[in-house]
Nucleic acid binder design. Structure first.
Lengths: 134, 134
DNA sequence: ATAACTGTAACAGTAAAAGTTACATGTTAA
DNA sequence: TTAACATGTAACTTTTACTGTTACAGTTAT
């Protein structure tokens, strides 16, 4: 599975945004992240929908923060991005009636869910200004 | 990226193997897992290299356990399979000189490493006979 | 008007995992 | 000793999630 880099990228963007007193364009971020402006709009669109940033059209337009970084947690961003699965481990479901498969899945799922909850808890305790001032 | 189902599959296989007093063929497992015999051999080959199973050729051949399940932990299997990364989260490295990227990566990596260590610890505490008798 | 923005649909590219084919090699039963 | 049944493995194709690209409609400042 190809790894998901949206979280990492959007954090990078947000901290840069925080340091700017004027809008920054998708093209500028694309250049910064060595990717494409459409990719940036795709990610940032999710944050806009969640209320963390605003976009303005036209000349001198671009992206601005809509909340102070100390009011945004890593968990907020993770959730705004759609909470893609954290783990790279698949549970099989070829034979849902097979008691062994069920048992294997239950055991793996127990561990993964427990750990996922821990990740989310840790994410919630990290505010973006902590990253910005790191 | 497609998720890795090797761990789930191989656990299923091992518990079935444990219940059998004679070798089981790759074709039988492939049928069980709704996949291909070569896929099974690929996975099982890694376990054989690690000493957890034995394979025998020819008629009446197939796979047998080489260790009791209560002597094998989830961690053992995870490691025998090559310890593929648990997380689906990528850290970017376009601009290794950018202090913001560094800061973002450090923060994410701290959390992920801490949690990965916890997963491995939990895996080490789960023996396969626990799954078998679940 | 036009240049500079975003929004988004509709594709193509990439890479990891899984699936498939083909064939060499080893083993056992009759 | 031969035929059937196993594994071993290389080489290739398919699948899938993510990312990248192109194209164009809509919006805004000058």
């Amino acid at each position: 599975m190809r790894k998901n880099s949206q979280l990492s990228r959007v954090l990078h963007i947000l901290v840069h945004l925080n340091k700017s007193d004027q809008p920054i364009t998708s093209a500028a971020f694309a250049n910064m992240l060595k990717t494409n402006a459409v990719v940036v709009r795709r990610i940032m669109g999710m944050l806009r929908n969640a209320g963390y940033v605003l976009s303005t059209n036209g000349r001198n337009g671009g992206w601005v923060l809509n909340k102070p970084l100390d009011n945004i947690s890593l968990l907020d961003i993770h959730q705004a991005l759609g909470e893609s699965t954290l783990f790279n481990i698949a549970l099989t479901d070829e034979h849902q009636h097979c008691p062994i498969e069920k048992s294997v899945n239950r055991e793996l799922q127990d561990v993964l869910q427990e750990v996922e909850a821990l990740v989310l808890q840790k994410f919630s305790a990290i505010s973006l200004d902590k990253i910005a001032n790191h």
